[in-house]
Design a protein around this nucleic acid. Sequence first.
DNA 1: CAGCCGTGGCT
DNA 2: TAGCCAAGGCT
Length: 347
Amino acid sequence: MSFADRLIDWQRRAGRHDLPWQRRRDPYGVWVAEIMLQQTQVATVIPYYQRFLERFPSAAALAEADLDEVLQLWSGLGYYSRARHLHRAAREIVERWGGVFPKRVEDIARLPGVGRSTAAAIAVFAFGARAAILDGNVKRVLARCFGIEGYPGTPAVERRLWRQAESLLPERDVAAYTQALMDLGALVCTRARPRCEACPVAGDCVARLTGRAEQLPTPRPRRPLPLRQVQWLVVLRHDEVLLEKRPPAGLWGGLWSFPEIAVEEDATAWCERALQASAQALTPLEPFDHVFTHFALRIHPQLVRVRRVPARAAQPGWLWIPIDEAARAAVPTPVRKVLAAVGSPGP
DNA sequence: CAGCCGTGGCT
DNA sequence: TAGCCAAGGCT
């Protein structure tokens, strides 16, 4: 029996069949699922997927929405450029494709946020196309099965993996085969402690036969990171907290967060400058020189280790948000946690 | 091309 | 426990 047939047969018995995005096979539902699942585990995606599709049931509904609302529904899921791309792509589908999701893999792959692998997955699951995917699961399964050495992040190794993935494609049942590949990687051929005894292709697996299953795929070469520490300023006024809108791209792009400074900077001086610079936006607040009688500045004790201090926006927006509402605003998860830790500052 | 982007689970 | 990685794509 061929590699593909063994996997398809196994998938029918032991694979996943009841995931939310497997219930609907329309291209929009498949597309949103594939974007959310990029670098994100299934269990994390499920509640976000259900909320998102309830609010935006179609590309047209998504295209009409404000980006802020899309980001708010995405908040906590991470990789926020996915949400910005999704929103842009929805408008592209409406304007360029007349609201009809493109069918050709090349056209799907031109949508923002959709690369080669995601385009193939959409085409396979929504349109029954014959195309190969190559995600983390598939890379691991193929690297082990066929003994492909080397870090998959390098172009040479990735080319070999793509060629291998293409050559294994069955003539029919590509959707079942693709799902099988991902299920095998997620449930059996796991990164640590693979369950080789439950694998339908263990008999032909190079890594299994050479005892190198846990050594493949070759891990990323580690390079020491110049870690710095930054800290957040939490500016409070009664039961309100000051948030700034981050630049539209980059880290937490378009989301609201606390002002963030390097640990070497003087927080008090920085806060004075920031409040002075945004005096217009802060009306009807008191003049900044009263800041320490009318406002409370807290330097949150939680320090964050980051690669670099994120660049600040030239013209950040500022917003005083009641603490209760802030917890529901479009803010990234670390900010929500700090917010919960700060609580109400009292009178 | 290599670094960046987020959060959570795992060992 | 601190690092590694996950249904990758963009620059």
